[in-house]
Nucleic acid binder design. Structure first.
Lengths: 145, 145
DNA sequence: TATTGTTATACTCTATAACTATA
DNA sequence: TATAGTTATAGAGTATAACAATA
């Protein structure tokens, strides 16, 4: 969807558009500042891989996409060296996905970039108001846990 | 990007993921409850057409996309009867885009559906906290005016 | 039989490039 | 020559369907 940017009267702005603006700002930062050429979706999939490893099917559920699409991104991330896949000793069907050191570094870098974006937002609306905003956002997102 | 849904520990949740969850909830409502078969992008493009009419190029700037992509959606919305295109009396190159009565109705219906989603959110976190959240969101979005 | 993962295919959204008709 | 719009093409991000290997 990605709701947008130009000079629209205040009374024609709606939640979807405003959320989309913030989302787009994040996407722009992620694309512009990504050193390894990873796309936002790669970062997203990689971010959901737990330290203990996970099957592609379970990862897909976590990420909220199909196992087919998930497997595609995992394959690309293995090619770039951010993930590795091992056999699961307990189940021959499962391919256990883990992050490499490079994957961990990229994930930490993502967190840093997001923190930087949030600092900018806090500066725009005030530290205190931003903290409140973020707390409510956390609560709203919990409903989808 | 569209950040996600499953059981992720609180400390691994980040802004992008949380904003994505809200955005996805809206998208789902828009798709599920759309009577005319319009997709979210159609609603978005249509929502930026002002009453006085607008050229495709200007509309594209407003929406934040290319004129090519914009022209494509306008064409489809003309086919569905939500928009009309007239000649501009002052400039023969320009095709002036306007909403029809059906387009106006669909736009009002969108606003109603969004209001309903927001009521649900307010119920989840409390009216007062939601109003604060929304006010900060408005301010943050203004930075992209 | 049920489940994991892959391959094949298609759809949505959007971009870039090349073109046409008017200015 | 510059601008408005169209046509053609391609890529990202996903989905559905059909399948192979393993349980």
């Amino acid at each position: 969807m990605t709701f947008v940017k130009a000079d629209v009267p205040a009374d024609e702005r709606h939640v979807a558009m405003e959320l989309g603006l913030l989302f787009d700002e994040i996407r722009r930062v992620l694309v512009d500042e990504e050193p390894d050429g990873l796309r936002p979706s790669h970062l997203r999939v990689m971010g959901f891989v737990p330290a203990r490893g996970i099957s592609i099917t379970d990862l897909a559920v976590r990420v909220g996409m199909t196992k087919q699409g998930c497997g595609q991104f995992v394959g690309q991330l293995v090619d770039t060296g951010h993930l590795v896949v091992e056999a699961d000793p307990g189940d021959g069907r499962v391919r256990l996905v883990r992050r490499t050191a490079a994957g961990d570094a990229a994930t930490r870098a993502l967190a840093a970039r997001l923190a930087h974006v949030e600092q900018g937002w806090a500066a725009r609306v005030g530290e205190r108001r931003y903290r409140t905003f973020r707390a409510v956002l956390d609560d709203l997102a919990l409903g989808h846990g």
